[in-house]
Computed example of a mutant assay.
Amino acid sequence: MILFPAIDILNGKCVRLIQGDYAKGKIYGDSPINIAERWVSRGADALHVVDLDGAKTGKSSNRDMIKEIAIKTDIPIQVGGGVRSIEQIEDYLSIGVERVILGTSAMKNPRLLNLAVNRFKEKIAVSIDARNGLVATDGWLKVSNVLAIDLLKQLEEIGVQKIIYTDILKDGMLQGPNFKELQVIQNATSIQVIASGGITTLEDVKKLKEMKLYGAIIGKALYDNSIDLTELLEVTQDVG
């Protein structure tokens, strides 16, 4: 299982939100680039980067900073937040991003999703962000009437190879992931699943590994020093 330390960028700073609420954010560093280098120095094999400004505006607001992270870390990074066009995807891939994540656009623009998956294949992942089982969009600011499990089936038909599944109510709460929902998602699809939201302890990571998930995104628990990245990597390093 691959661990992805999370780097969420808002107004040029590294922040963590609680349940996706932009009004409930905490700044953990003025330089997301330095934070990225910290996680790499502690053994991270990959990074999960989100442009929170872009998630609201639909523009790659922190593109230059993300480029610098890709250059300086020299490990695979996946990037999401505000990706709404093929041109944005091409640009991110051209600056060294390994995988581009589509969220809102996967819901609102099926044509874009189809084009992206057909053209870039495994370079595309889709973020399914759910609140009480319903898909949220626009930086989690809006909740649709689409069930996450129904969207998952559509993504499989299109040929999506990886998803990031986030239970918004767990995100940033340090109360553990929604194992029950993750197991439902894992059992329902052949798509590789990356878990996100609420992962807090070494036991959480061990359980996700036992569930045979592809990966897990670790956020607030790392920044609050609730868990140690080196310890987590020791648990997961025997699985690629």
Score class of each variant (00 low, 15 high):
D138N: 15
L155H: 04
I128E: 00
M173V: 08
A44C: 09
N132A: 01
T189G: 00
I191K: 03
T73C: 11
N109G: 01
R131L: 09
I86R: 10
L213Y: 13
K72Q: 13
V100L: 06
V184C: 04
A116Y: 14
L229Q: 12
I2L: 10
T201W: 06
D224L: 09
L10H: 15
N225L: 06
V143T: 14
F4D: 07
K142V: 12
R111A: 00
L93Y: 13
T236F: 10
N145K: 14
D238F: 12
K13P: 02
F4M: 07
V143I: 13
L232R: 11
I71H: 11
I128T: 02
C14R: 05
I194F: 11
G82C: 05
Y92Q: 10
Y28W: 04
K206F: 10
R111N: 05
G96L: 04
G54A: 04
V49S: 00
K220R: 09
T189H: 02
S190Y: 01
V83N: 02
A195E: 06
L202C: 00
A136Q: 11
D91L: 12
S61V: 13
T200Y: 14
S31V: 09
S226G: 04
I7H: 05
D45E: 04
V184Q: 12
V193A: 03
V97R: 13
L115Y: 15
K153L: 06
G12K: 14
L102D: 01
S226L: 09
S61N: 14
C14E: 04
E37C: 10
I33H: 02
K170F: 11
E87Y: 09
Q237V: 07
L102K: 01
Y223E: 03
F179W: 09
K123E: 11
I227Y: 10
S127Q: 01
A55V: 10
R38W: 11
I2M: 07
D64L: 12
D129L: 11
E181A: 06
D167E: 14
V100W: 14
L52G: 08
S226A: 06
L208G: 05
I71K: 14
I86Y: 08
L3Q: 01
Y214S: 01
E90K: 15
G20A: 07
V15H: 11
V40G: 03
P110A: 03
Q161S: 02
K59W: 02
L113F: 11
T230R: 14
L113D: 07
I35T: 10
K153G: 00
V239D: 12
G139K: 13
I227W: 12
E234L: 10
V79L: 06
N187R: 08
L3R: 03
V146W: 07
I9F: 10
E231L: 01
Q78S: 06
Q183H: 03
L93S: 08
L208V: 05
D238P: 04
D204T: 13
L202Y: 15
S61K: 15
R119C: 00
T57F: 12
L115R: 15
G159K: 03
V49A: 02
G103R: 04
I2Q: 12
V205R: 05
S127H: 02
S144L: 09
V135Y: 13
L182S: 04
I89A: 02
M107T: 10
L102P: 00
G20N: 12
A221V: 03
L10W: 14
V146T: 09
K220M: 01
A55W: 15
